[in-house]
Write a protein that binds this DNA or RNA. Structure first.
Lengths: 262, 262
DNA sequence: AAGTGGTCTAGACCACGTT
DNA sequence: ACGTGGTCTAGACCACTTT
C-alpha cells in the first residue's frame, strides 16, 4: 500500500466540531478542485486514507460517499475511486426544430452528433397505441388513446436521453408516424405533410434526481441529476399535435434558448 | 417503540442477491410511491426498522441514505425521517422579460410572487466592481472589469434562487444600475433609458448537484439538484450588455419556453 | 495472491427535540 | 428521561480486478 504524497491531503483538526468524515471530504474536494487529482485520476484507496487519517474505514467511506453524492467522484468495484470526468456535452439550441433542419434524410440527432464527431445510436424503439397519462391527455386536448413512440439515444455507446412522443390517434393512426421509421425529417415532417403545419413548441424544463429505473436505463453515475423536458407541438390552428416527454442525463446536456425582449 | 403496521412493509428475500439495504430501500420507496406514507409523513424510526427487518442499524441507515440521495425523504435530527413534501413551484415563462412586465414599480419577482399568494423577499444584495471570470468576460465581449450585482431570492422564507448580474463598467458605472436599488422596472428598464434598447436574451441551462456552499446558501435538502442558468442580454446593436448567472433550487422551479417552428 | 471497493454486524457515545 | 438521528469504531466476509 503506497503512502499518500505529502502536501496533497492535510491533517484533521481535532478541535473543530465539524465531523471527521466531512473534514476528510472537504480535503479531498479541495484537492480535486485545485487539480491535485485530475479528471479521471484515481483517489487514494480507502485503506490508504484510513492509514493517512488514522480513522476507521466506515469514516473514510462516509467521506467518499459525500463526494459521490456531489457527483465529484465515482467508484469502480475492485479498481478504485476516480475523479469523475466530464463527458462531452450536447448543446440543444432553440432553433433545433426549425424547418430548415428538417430537410435532410437523417434524424436531427444523427446529423448533429456526426457533425460533432460522435457516434450516435438510437435504440429500444417501441411504437404502440396506449392510454395516455392524465397529464399527457390534458396537454393533447383530452384524447383517450394515443400513439406512443419510445426511443433511447446514445452517444459513443453511452445512453444520454430517453424520449417518448405521444400523438392523438386521429392524426397518427395508419400514417408513417405509426411506423418504426417515419422517414426523412422525422415525425414533424410527416405531421406537416398530413396538413398539420407546425406553428410553435412549448417546452417545460425540470431537474431532479433520477428514479432507480432511470439510473439503470441511462447508466447514470451517482450524483448525476436528470433534466426532464416536456415539449408540446402546436399546429397553425392552435391544436396540440404532439407531446414529447424526455429524460436526459444532466451531465450530457446544456439547453440553449433565445428569448425576445418584446 | 411502536411496531410497524403489518402490510406496509414486506419481508426480506434472503434468496435474492440484491443487497439487504437496497431491498429495504425498495420497500420504503414503494410504500411512499403507493401513498402508504404520504407527503410530510414520518417514516418508521431507525430502531423500528432494525427490529422489523432484523438487521443492524447501519444497514437501515444505508437504506435511508439511498432514499435521501433520491430526494424522496429528508431527516431531521432528533425528530425522524420524513417523506419530502414538494414545495410550491415557481414557473418561469419565456415572456418574463417582455417589456410590458417592466412597467411596474416593483421587481418582476415581487409582483409575480405576490400574485401567486407567496411572500417574496430579496436579500444579501451586494453591488461592487470586480474582475470578471474568463467565461463572463468572454460573454460580455472581453471587459477587464465589470459591475457585479448579487442577490438572493426567497419565497415564504425559503431561499430559492441566487443570482449575479454582470455589466460592463462603461455602461453601468455612475448610473442607477450601480445603486443597490436601481428603481422601477429594474436594471433592464435602466439599460433602455441609457440607450441600450434590448433586442433579445440568450439563456443556457444546466443541471447538476449543488456545491457545499450552494447547499448552505439555498438551504437545500439532500437529493435536490440545482438548475444553473446563464442569461446574456443583447441590445439592438448586437452588443451583450448584461450576463446574469443564476443558481436555482431545482425543486422550486419549472422553466417554460416557447420555440418557433420556423 | 493481493488489492480494491461492497456489504454487514454489534456495539458505543453524542446532539437534538419532545415529553 | 427518553426517543430520535449523527458519528465513529473494529472488526468480518464477499465480489471484482489486477498481478
Amino acid at each position: 500500500m503506497a503512502a499518500i504524497p505529502s502536501g496533497v491531503l492535510g491533517a484533521l483538526d481535532s478541535t473543530s466540531d465539524r465531523a471527521v468524515f466531512r473534514q476528510i471530504a472537504d480535503q479531498l474536494r479541495e484537492a480535486i478542485d485545485k487539480g491535485r487529482f485530475k479528471e479521471g485520476a484515481k483517489l487514494p484507496s480507502e485503506s490508504e486514507l484510513v492509514e493517512h487519517y488514522g480513522v476507521s474505514r466506515m469514516t473514510v467511506r462516509n467521506a467518499l460517499s459525500v463526494l459521490q453524492g456531489e457527483g465529484l467522484v465515482h467508484s469502480e468495484h475492485g479498481k478504485g475511486v476516480f475523479v469523475r470526468p466530464r463527458p462531452p456535452v450536447r448543446r440543444l439550441a432553440s432553433d433545433r426544430f426549425a424547418r430548415r433542419h428538417r430537410d435532410q434524410g437523417k434524424a436531427a440527432f444523427t446529423v448533429e452528433a456526426e457533425a460533432a464527431g460522435s457516434h450516435p445510436e438510437v435504440d429500444s424503439l417501441e411504437v404502440k397505441e396506449e392510454r395516455p397519462t392524465q397529464d399527457v391527455s390534458a396537454r393533447l386536448g383530452g384524447p383517450r388513446r394515443v400513439l406512443a413512440r419510445r426511443r433511447r439515444y446514445l452517444l459513443d455507446g453511452r445512453p444520454v436521453e430517453f424520449a417518448t412522443s405521444y400523438l392523438p390517434l386521429d392524426i397518427a393512426r395508419g400514417t408513417p408516424i405509426a411506423e418504426p421509421n417515419p422517414g426523412p425529417g422525422g415525425i414533424y415532417a410527416r405531421l406537416e405533410e398530413l396538413g398539420h403545419r407546425l406553428d410553435h413548441f412549448e417546452e417545460e424544463i425540470r431537474a431532479r434526481m433520477p428514479t432507480p429505473g432511470e439510473v439503470k436505463f441511462l447508466r447514470l453515475a451517482a450524483g448525476v441529476p436528470v433534466i426532464h423536458l416536456i415539449r408540446t407541438a402546436f399546429d397553425t390552428e392552435g391544436r396540440p399535435v404532439e407531446v414529447c416527454d424526455t429524460v436526459m442525463a444532466a451531465d450530457a446536456y446544456v439547453l440553449a434558448y433565445q428569448l425576445p425582449a418584446t
